[in-house]
């Protein structure tokens, strides 16, 4: 055995020994169900708005609480429906969009949503 291989094998053995010492808390529940501590990493990306100055307003105020998919998968809605949605985001959920921005932003979202729907067909 080459010395390098021997060292690698030693390190490997040490790593296994160490891993054995690390505590893996587990709760054994009835029905042979074992609950172990868990951690997941969620995908960070999401869809962004694009096209024109209102896109950056949308990216500022409409991606705080949900990714763009929430907005971009909506069906074709009327301008009035989009205005109602923005009012709801502000009143029900605490979206900090200034009231003065509603008309223009609703217009932009209605338009970009229509484009999306059209391009998907």
């Amino acid at each position: 055995m080459k010395p390098a291989t021997a060292i690698l094998l030693c390190l490997w053995g040490a790593a296994i020994a160490l891993a054995g010492c690390v505590r893996h808390p587990a709760i054994k529940a009835p029905g042979a169900i074992v609950l172990r501590s868990q951690r997941i990493t969620l995908p960070a990306h999401g869809r962004q708005f694009s096209g024109g100055p209102q896109a950056s307003v949308a990216n500022t105020y409409c991606l705080m609480c949900h990714s763009g998919g929430m907005v971009m998968t909506q069906p074709p809605l009327t301008l009035a429906q989009w205005q109602a949605e923005l009012h709801k985001m502000i009143a029900a959920y605490g979206c900090p969009l200034p009231g003065g921005n509603i008309a223009e932003l609703a217009q932009f979202i209605a338009q970009s949503n229509q484009n999306l729907t059209a391009s998907a067909r």
């Binding site: 969620l42 999401g46 999306l116 998907a120 067909r121």
Partner: peptide, 30 residues
């Protein structure tokens, strides 16, 4: 996947502990 209604295109994506599913919204996941 194209769901059969307007704006029904859905990417198929795998999230942790999940096989690829139809992605409606990334955050929080739907």
């Amino acid at each position: 996947v194209e769901l059969p209604f307007a704006n029904g295109a859905r990417r198929v994506e795998a999230f942790p502990q999940k096989r690829p599913l139809l992605l409606l919204r990334t955050r929080p996941p739907l």
